[in-house]
């Protein structure tokens, strides 16, 4: 068969995919009516596409319909069980509060607990003695002593009464 140089095989491939601009598609369609070479190429490409689609379709039809669904449901249930397990204690506690309707009591208890913890945190051991004397100055009118404790520095000033 005589070959045709008017349209490249790549263009014919695009034509099969309906990816050419409409003007070119129309001209090519007209050309196809009178060109056996291009007709054959287009037909060959279309046949390939059909055969592949059928092959894949045949394979998909062989698939067991319920297999994916069954396995997926098992996976979903496992995932849900995992989520539930993680929060089961917390959920149980919340359910208990809801059933007993003891919101106010629980809130008061939580507040007391928080305040007690805050109060206990402030009960640090007191330092009654200075940890160090940084400096001391004795003057005629007054004396000054600078002490350092773990928290801060203290300055003590004595004035002579006479």
């Amino acid at each position: 068969m005589k070959s045709c140089n008017k349209y490249t095989p790549k263009m014919l491939s695009q034509f099969v995919d309906n990816a050419l601009p409409s003007q070119i598609t129309r001209t090519l369609e007209e050309h196809l009516t009178s060109c056996p070479a291009c007709q054959q190429t287009v037909k060959k490409y279309q046949n390939i596409t059909n055969q592949v689609v059928n092959g894949i379709q045949r394979h998909s039809n062989r698939m067991n319909d319920t297999e994916i669904e069954k396995n997926l449901l098992i996976k979903i249930r496992k995932e849900n069980a995992k989520k539930k397990w993680n929060f089961s204690y917390l959920n149980g506690f919340i359910d208990f509060i809801k059933v007993k309707k003891i919101y106010l009591q629980m809130a008061s208890f939580a507040a007391i607990l928080l305040l007690s913890m805050a109060f206990l945190q402030d009960q640090r051991p007191a330092f009654h003695t200075p940890s160090a004397i940084v400096n001391s100055i004795d003057g005629e009118m007054a004396s000054v002593m600078i002490l350092e404790t773990p928290d801060r520095r203290h300055t003590i000033i004595w004035y002579k009464e006479s």
Partner: peptide
């Protein structure tokens, strides 16, 4: 769960065709 079952039934063969 029922919605997922419908989803699977509706789309599994199309996705299977692509994957295969």
């Amino acid at each position: 769960e029922a919605a997922f079952q419908i989803l699977v039934k509706q789309y599994q063969s199309r996705l299977m065709a692509i994957a295969w």
